[in-house]
Design a binder for these strands. Sequence first.
RNA 1: UUGGUUGACCAGACGGUCGCUGCUGCCUUGCGCAGGAGAGGAAAGUCCGGGCUUCACAGGGCAGGACGGUCGGUAACGCCGACCCGCUGCAAGGCGAGGGAAAGUGCCGCAGAAAAGAUACCGCCGAACGGCCGGUCGGCUGCUGAGGAGAGUUCGUAAGCGCGGGUGACAGCCAAGAUAGAACGGAAUUUGUCUCCGACUCCAUUGCUUCGGGGGCAGCUCUCCGAGCCCAUGAAUAAUCCGGGCUAGGCUCCUCAACAGCCGAUCGGUGCGUGGUAAGGGUGAAAUGGUGAGGUAAGAGCUCACCAGCGAUCAGGGUGACUUGAUCGGCUUGGUAAACCCCGUCCGAAGCAAGAUCAAACAGAGGGCAGUUUCGCUCCGGCGGAUGCGACUUGCACCGGUCGCCACGACCUUCGGGUAGAUCGCUCGAGUUCGCAAGUAAUUGCGAAUCUAGAUAAAUGACCGUCGAAGCUGGGCAAGAGUCAAGCGCUCUUGCCCGGUGGGACAGAACCCGGCUUAUCGGUCGACCAACGCG
RNA 2: UGCCCGAUAGUGUAAUUGGCAACACGACAGAUUCUGACUCUGUUAUUCUAGGUUCAAGUCCUAGUCGGGCAG
Length: 145
Amino acid sequence: MSDSLRFSARQRLKKRDEFQRVFREGKIASDDVLVIHAIWADESEPCGPQNSEAWADQRAFASVTRIGLSIPKKVGSAPVRNRWKRLIREAFRLSQHELPGGLHLVIRPRKGAIPELRRIQASLNRLVPKLHRKLRNRRVDHPRR
RNA sequence: UUGGUUGACCAGACGGUCGCUGCUGCCUUGCGCAGGAGAGGAAAGUCCGGGCUUCACAGGGCAGGACGGUCGGUAACGCCGACCCGCUGCAAGGCGAGGGAAAGUGCCGCAGAAAAGAUACCGCCGAACGGCCGGUCGGCUGCUGAGGAGAGUUCGUAAGCGCGGGUGACAGCCAAGAUAGAACGGAAUUUGUCUCCGACUCCAUUGCUUCGGGGGCAGCUCUCCGAGCCCAUGAAUAAUCCGGGCUAGGCUCCUCAACAGCCGAUCGGUGCGUGGUAAGGGUGAAAUGGUGAGGUAAGAGCUCACCAGCGAUCAGGGUGACUUGAUCGGCUUGGUAAACCCCGUCCGAAGCAAGAUCAAACAGAGGGCAGUUUCGCUCCGGCGGAUGCGACUUGCACCGGUCGCCACGACCUUCGGGUAGAUCGCUCGAGUUCGCAAGUAAUUGCGAAUCUAGAUAAAUGACCGUCGAAGCUGGGCAAGAGUCAAGCGCUCUUGCCCGGUGGGACAGAACCCGGCUUAUCGGUCGACCAACGCG
RNA sequence: UGCCCGAUAGUGUAAUUGGCAACACGACAGAUUCUGACUCUGUUAUUCUAGGUUCAAGUCCUAGUCGGGCAG
């Protein structure tokens, strides 16, 4: 993983199944700006032929933290929703190296919050490590999963 | 200068750093590099119209929906332009679902005489017919009075006369009545006086008296009969009968006067019945043309003049909606169709999550694997036809068309459809810019140049710097006003300069296009109008 | 993306073919009571917004706002 601040397409959640699984099985953490759902990334890739090259690729792929955004219409009109999405992406892009890897996150704004880059960045840096600890504890409790 | 109307345009600018999504190029094919591109006037609402796609499509009908001045523009429109008409604004301008109410139906609350049929209510009138009241005139009848004429005031008989009723053309006939007779019928009553004649006595004369008769004058005209009413009485009433009582009238005719009644004519009144009228009724959003004159019993388009409005004809202008003028006509027709409805025009349905290609998983179908309602043929493997039922045919029905018609399970194989997913559709198009031409314009034609977002858990962003309009604020200068006798000073207003602050509305493409509607901080430019001032 | 429905006092609902916006529960005020409750009387509406048609609009038409639902 380089030090670049890129935010490419493979760092995003795109499939409907992935969103469903995060919402159904993930842990939740929130403050007054964001609400974040999280789950381990490698559990989302259970099957597939395990030839060596693709497997390594899968492992590398799974070590990357990916995010998805869920901005409901209640937040506001289309420009407001677009601004939320862009600011959350920007915040993740700028601080992606400080965050733990191997997670799938779905981020949504708290109702009534104001979209502002600094507050989103601070909230992200506070909530994601917290979720990471939660998930690691659960993995210790149930190692076979 | 102030206030306003209208059209077009802009939608913070520049630079730097880190990113995102396509495209192109390159290589060492990556956890790439480089280049260049990347939201709007409304991208919005999804209200119309079209392209495109799939389905349906023999035909016509019904239903449903939309639209509605005229001409033009357009691929098309519910859009646009020009014009007409109406409303509105001092004006520039703005607004108009702007066909039909004399095809029909419905509705028009309250108020009001009446809300659409023309009449009815109040009112007005007294013309016409009738009623009532009054006056005048005429006729008839009655009564009273006056005058005149006549009759009765002895009895009886006979014949006859006269009145009324029925029938009948008349003559006549019939019946029977008496308020048609004191009157030419019957009964009763029946005065006074004068005069004449006659009689009575033995005779004569005269006178008187009496009686009878005739006449004159005066007086009188009763009663019975017959009419009406009341009381009492006996049987329920009434009538009759009995008893009692009261009232009026009375001979006839003629004339005159007064009065009364009836009839007729006429005049006046009343407005009672039949009538005439729609001028007036002040209510309402809306009231059956308006003004004036004539006319009338009173009135009325009843008549006339002018005006408004409707219709027709002719002429002028315009492609047309329409408009101008002249003549004529019936004399006047409520509103509402964004109520039903009628007329005219248009509309097949669904939509890029359309649709096309590839295609995991799961389910499914055929074959391995026999058997079908009926008829015909048959080489017995099948083939062809018919009927019925069911399903589908994308609003409905008919017609037409297509498909299916014994079941269960395992395995193998094949197959099509097709979900997740992927690719295409996907951005070269009624495209954009410029020029010329046609046209008042919308718009169109020609030529040249040019390619200008294409995402799909969904890009177009973040940060920094400089500049930057309005607004707020501090200072300075100038002008004006107030305060003051005046000046300075102070306060207020306006303009200019400098500094600080401020730091941008509505809003995010999702197949494309033409419109409409809605949202929007502000700014730029043009045209025009009104008022005021100056020249 | 397409389609459908709704909005009326504080709350829940009515209002026929366009003609005085009604009912219940609340709230408030008054009466009754020594006081409270009960009871009685009264008050309480920009009919979501704007525009239009009409003499007259909750109702009809147009545009918008908000809410709810359905299909794939």
